[in-house]
Design a protein around this nucleic acid. Structure first.
Lengths: 122, 122
DNA sequence: GCCTAACGATTACATCTGTAGTCATACGAG
DNA sequence: CTCGTATGACTACAGATGTAATCGTTAGGC
């Protein structure tokens, strides 16, 4: 299990993490803001996510309601770890350094992270 | 331009970021530790990276020396931003929070990041 | 009861990716 | 000069991905 979720599929997952269960039509509607996919495309993505065990379905009449089978936090965790392992030798601090240098962290960002860390030490 | 670099291609880039220029055989040798690709596979990846303008070549006799055409930092920067945008609303602190919570940052990690931030504020 | 519209399922197809084999060629050993 | 070998180019092919059309079925309106 734990097949990899593609970018397009991820967009669908986000909708369902935000609000589930939903049927295909509803998911399509919510995606319309950000994507210009047809209903058919959304349905394909849903099918693929079901075969990947990333979604579960509940039949209601002749239609399905879809619900995430994995936690967003698990997905986010996996993806983050992947990136950090691949690009930063598995350590978080070089990533922070990278952002600091290339992205100009705002004072606010810095304060937020510091607060976080402070809390961790208690 | 700026075509996306795949995972396998990235492994090749890392070798060249570490030490360039190198010829195909040499790259293959250096990859042998981590990957069990054949020379043919490595050559395919090199060709694709050249068409993606991620590598440049210098002919020397009948062979090529390959050299990165993009900085590692640019690549790392792009990939990091992609992840942070996709999963953390573009902000770094939620990523740090995520790691803190799911990955148990060591005291050492925390200290490193704090030092980094302290330095930023000067 | 019949037709239509809405569903999921199936099929389609180009591109990208991982992985590698084959081909033409030219350099270097003898 | 000849031949094997190393080299880049080209070809191959299955699976993933983005994107969508079509098909078979069935519930609901009339």
């Amino acid at each position: 299990m734990a097949e990899r979720i593609s970018d397009a599929e991820h967009a669908v997952m986000e909708v369902l993490w935000d609000h589930a269960p939903l049927d295909a039509q509803n998911i399509y509607d919510r995606l319309s803001d950000s994507q210009s996919w047809t209903l058919a495309t959304v349905k394909t993505l849903l099918s693929r996510l079901v075969s990947k065990d990333a979604l579960t379905t509940e039949a209601e009449g002749r239609k399905f309601f879809y619900r995430p089978a994995i936690e967003r936090s698990a997905y986010v965790s996996g993806e983050s770890r992947r990136l950090v392992d691949r690009l930063f030798g598995g350590k978080l601090s070089p990533l922070v350094a990278q952002f600091a240098q290339a992205e100009k962290l705002s004072a606010e960002d810095i304060a937020e992270i510091e607060a976080l860390l402070r809390e961790l030490k208690t």
